[in-house]
Computed example of a mutant assay.
Amino acid sequence: MNSVITFFQNGGSFMYPIALVLVVGLALAIERWVFLTVAKGSNRRTFDRILPMLRKKDYAGVIDLARSSKAPIGRIVASGVARMQQTPRRDEIEYAMEEGVMEAVPRLEKRTPYLATLANIATLLGLLGTIMGLIAAFTAVANADPSEKASLLSQSISVAMNTTAFGLMSAIPLLLIHAMLQNKTTEIVDSLEMAGVKCLNIMSSTNSFAARTRQADGAK
C-alpha cells in the first residue's frame, strides 16, 4: 500500500486527472454492465411469455405485455402484431419489427463508446505528464546548482515515468471493458433479431393458415 501511495505522489499533479478519468470510466462500465445484464434477462423472460401467446393468437395479450414490460423484444413483437392487424403481408410486418430493433439498439449502445474516449484521454494525459516532467528535468539540469542537479533530475524523471505508467494502467482496462461491453451488446442485438424472426415466422404461418381458411370458406 505504501508503494502505491509513493508511486502516486511521485507522479505529480497529472496523476489526479488520470485517476478521475479512471474512476469515471469504471463507474460508467459498471452501469452499462448492469444495464445490459438486466436487459438480456428481461428480454429472455418476455420472449418466453410472448411465444405461447402468439401460438394461441392472443395478440391483445402480446400488446398488453409489451406495454407493461420495458424489454425491447416486447415492443418489437408488438410493432409486428400491430402491423399484422393492418396488413397480412410478411414484408410489411418485417419492416415494422426491424424498426423496433433499430429503436432498441441506441439504448443498448448508449454511453459505451465513451469508454474508448476515456481510455484515449488517460493515455494522452499520461503522455502530457511525461512531456511536462521532461521539460522540468531539462530546466532543472540547466538552472540548478551542480550538487542539486541529480536530485532534481531524479524527481522530474519520476514524474515523467509515473504519469505514463498510470495513464497506460488506466487506459488498458478501460479498453478491455469497452470491448467486452460491445460484445455483450452485439449478443443482445443478435438475440433480438433471432427472436423477432421466430415470432415473425409464427405470425406469418398463422396469417397464411387464416387466409387459406377464408379462401376455402369462400369457395364453398
Rank of each mutant, 00 (worst) to 15 (best):
W33H: 01
G25C: 13
I188Q: 02
F138S: 12
G196N: 10
S158D: 10
K220W: 07
L51Y: 06
R111I: 00
A19Y: 03
K184Q: 14
A216W: 11
S13Q: 01
T46R: 00
G218L: 15
I63R: 12
A78R: 07
I177Y: 05
E103D: 12
V4E: 04
G167L: 00
V141Y: 13
L108I: 07
E193C: 02
S158E: 05
V159R: 04
K184P: 02
N143P: 00
I135H: 12
A78D: 04
I93N: 00
A19T: 14
M84K: 08
F8A: 10
F166A: 15
L192A: 04
L118D: 03
F47H: 06
I18Q: 08
L124W: 05
R67E: 14
L118R: 06
N207G: 08
M180T: 11
T213Y: 06
L125A: 11
T123R: 00
G61A: 14
I30L: 15
L152P: 06
W33S: 01
E99P: 00
G25I: 08
G133L: 11
V21K: 09
K70D: 14
A119H: 05
A210T: 08
V21T: 15
N43T: 03
S208L: 15
M161I: 14
S13A: 08
S208M: 14
E193K: 09
R67V: 04
L26V: 15
I50P: 02
G196T: 13
Q215S: 12
L181T: 06
S13R: 02
L125S: 06
R44S: 05
A29I: 04
S208V: 13
P146H: 01
L124K: 05
V159F: 00
